[in-house]
């Protein structure tokens, strides 16, 4: 399986016939290219489809255009940070039921509380253990773990 985290093809034009269950789609929102790349690689390996956005504004634009099964959101971002993005998601009827996990280096209890207040479903601290991250994403998207 080749990894093409930055592949230019849109979701619709899948080069292979889709299996019976479509792979969950995850939107990774982080302003750090390395983190996006890292998440994309980990999830791609597990068969997830990954889209990326560098800030909340871009993420909202994409979220409104396509269906996602999970948002992985950083806190510190320019233009629109993770809190604002989640608050916006939870206000938007079309998006409010999509689970979201915050992935941030902030480890203070205050930050975590703010994340849940904004509408996060889970909180992971960077640097995240890859297995823990993948397992979390699987659980939150309903991918069988056994």
């Amino acid at each position: 399986m080749t990894i093409q985290p930055f592949g230019p093809q849109p979701f619709g034009e899948h080069p292979f016939p889709r299996g019976p269950a479509p792979c969950p789609r995850v939107l990774v929102v982080d302003d750090t290219l390395t983190v996006r790349l890292y998440c994309a690689q980990l999830l791609a390996r597990e068969g997830f489809e990954v889209a990326e956005a560098v800030n909340g504004v871009e993420a909202l634009e994409q979220a409104l255009e396509q269906d996602f099964d999970l948002f992985v959101v950083d806190i510190n971002m320019a233009r629109m940070d993770g809190y604002a993005f989640l608050a916006e998601v939870r206000r938007t009827p079309a998006l409010q039921a999509i689970p979201a996990v915050m992935l941030s280096t902030e480890a203070a209890e205050g930050d975590i509380a703010r994340a849940y207040q904004a509408g996060a479903n889970f909180y992971l601290t960077k640097p995240v253990d890859p297995e823990r991250f993948v397992a979390t994403v699987k659980l939150m998207t309903g991918v069988p773990c056994r």
């Binding site: 489809e49 990954v50 990326e52």
Partner: peptide
């Protein structure tokens, strides 16, 4: 009790980001 087990990777699934960030 169970550790989350690795998932069998769906054959032929590939990842793409349909909107390149840059």
């Amino acid at each position: 009790a169970s550790e989350p087990e690795p998932l069998a990777i769906a054959e032929g699934s590939a990842t793409r980001s349909d909107t390149p960030a840059e």
